[in-house]
Design a binder for these strands. Structure first.
Length: 114
DNA sequence: TATTTGACCAAGA
DNA sequence: ATCTTGGCCAAAT
């Protein structure tokens, strides 16, 4: 059954690495950036990271693996996007203790090196 | 194989 | 503090 799941949601090595790093190095109460994730894998594909978050098969709603894609924000402290709507992203972050000031995430919450 | 598409980023004649 | 522009590159088409 595991194999069927993988066939249904084939992961490139790139996406898999991003998910893994995000899942293991960004705890609740902290956030990271698209850029930091890309760099952690040794690439400048910042935008590709966003696409991967958008389409990730491990929806935090339906899958137990719960890749915390709501903890990924833009490099300038802005929210970035969220597949289920930005308000949902804000709510999740707030629930984890991340306060948003004036639409931006304060620097103290951001992990820029992974 | 070629072109288009982004939840991006940095710089600014 | 905004807005624009050119660059970036994996995935999707």
């Amino acid at each position: 059954m595991q194999i069927l799941y993988l066939l249904r949601f084939p992961l490139s090595n790139f996406a898999e690495q991003i998910y893994d790093i995000l899942k293991h190095k960004v705890p609740a109460g902290k956030v990271t950036t698209y850029k930091a994730l890309a760099e952690a894998v040794g690439t400048k594909a910042y935008r590709a990271v966003g696409q991967i978050m958008n389409k990730n098969p491990y929806s935090f709603l339906s899958d137990k693996r719960k890749i915390p894609c709501h903890r990924v924000i833009a490099s300038d402290g802005g929210l970035g996007g969220f597949a289920y709507g930005n308000q949902a992203k804000i709510n999740l972050l707030k629930a984890e203790g991340v306060t948003i000031i004036d639409g931006k995430i304060p620097e103290k919450y951001i992990l820029r090196k992974l």
